[in-house]
């Protein structure tokens, strides 16, 4: 094997793409943790739900087999979405919008019924409740959607996003999907960062994460802020879920599990509770994994990722961007 510069670049681009997905999911973990100090274990299942909702929407809007299978009123709409660049952009936009909203609402719903009753319970109770939600959602997908791995494509096997090489520089090929994922994740991250640091609601969120009670006394509606965090996080997770399906080519009921652990790891590497930390951690982890797989061994990529995590935490116990928390006396 010859490790050339173009090989290094191509692996780095693989890593940045993967990192973009991790970052999007990691934000959901970090937002919830920042405000409620709980690990939302069910977040990985919302990522999975995003993948399924996205596939459903794509099939309805752009799979002729669905229209032929009895839903003929969809045919004219499908004709538009399947034609030209405008149709393609609209298709992608509508898919992401619907998946994000549906899954965001799922997040709000889960918070309302599974976590809110536990806000004053012992610390591990919400974690167990979240694990319960996670098991429930996985099995719901298994029983009510499919136990099989579903291809992320039309019934005739063609992909919704053509997996073409967009351009090649210095022997490095970059695909359309990779550009889409990297650009979208960066845009969403920038948007979220501005939203949290500049807007009034964003300030309320930050206040709540610093001191929930004090923020409440200052007139912040705690419940709405928490509900909002439980909307935004899963919505971003859903975007990552749809991308995941398009990029890797399938959805399965247990697909959220591994990306879930990794994204949580990313959030911790960056400093949990810190939005920019989650983004940094996500990209870093993606690149590390990709390079570990490319230069060391694919079998040990997760081992290397977790060793990096342990090293980061041993030397910077608060994560890269997190502050070492002063102990309250």
């Amino acid at each position: 094997m010859n490790f050339t510069l173009s090989y290094l670049l191509e692996q780095t681009i693989n890593g940045i793409t993967l990192g973009g997905l991790y970052a999007l999911v990691a934000l959901g973990y970090t937002m919830v943790y920042g405000i409620l100090l709980m690990i939302n274990f069910a977040h990985s299942e919302l990522f999975m739900a995003g993948g399924y909702v996205g596939l459903g929407v794509l099939k309805l809007l752009a799979d002729p087999a669905i229209a032929k299978g009895g839903l003929s009123f969809l045919a004219p709409m499908q004709a538009f979405f399947n034609s030209g660049t405008a149709g393609f952009v609209a298709l992608i936009a509508v898919t992401f919008l619907i998946s994000a909203i549906v899954v965001g609402l799922m997040g709000v719903f889960i918070e309302r019924f599974a976590y809110r009753p536990l806000r004053h319970a012992p610390r591990l109770a919400p974690l167990i409740s979240a694990i319960g939600v996670s098991i429930f959602l996985q099995n719901a997908a298994l029983l009510w959607i499919s136990s099989k791995q579903l291809p992320y494509s039309r019934a005739d096997g063609t992909s919704f996003v053509p997996a073409k090489t967009a351009f090649t520089v210095f022997g490095v090929s970059v695909s359309t999907m990779q550009i889409m994922i990297i650009v979208t994740s960066l845009l969403l991250l920038a948007f979220l960062d501005t939203f949290v640091s500049k807007t009034r609601i964003g300030k309320a969120m930050r206040a709540t994460s610093q001191d929930r009670e004090a923020a409440g006394l200052m007139g912040v509606n705690i419940n709405s802020v928490i509900a909002l965090a439980f909307f935004i996080g899963p919505a971003l997770g859903a975007v990552a879920g749809v991308f995941n399906g398009m990029y890797y080519g399938s959805v399965k009921f247990n697909m959220g599990f591994i990306p879930g652990i990794k994204s949580f790891t990313a959030a911790v590497i960056g400093g949990i509770g810190n939005l920019r930390g989650a983004m940094l951690g996500g990209f870093l982890l993606g690149i590390i994994e990709s390079l570990a797989s490319g230069f060391i061994s694919n079998a040990y990529r997760d081992v290397i990722a977790f060793i990096v995590l342990i090293l980061v935490l041993v030397f910077r116990p608060g994560g890269l961007l997190g502050e070492a928390v002063a102990e309250k006396v």
């Binding site: 490790f3 090989y7 191509e10 890593g15 993967l18 890797y248 399965k252 697909m255 797989s293 694919n298």
Partner: peptide
Amino acid sequence: DTDFKALVTKIKS
């Protein structure tokens, strides 16, 4: 596993 992107780059090389 579903992510073989890094592996594919390696295979290709």
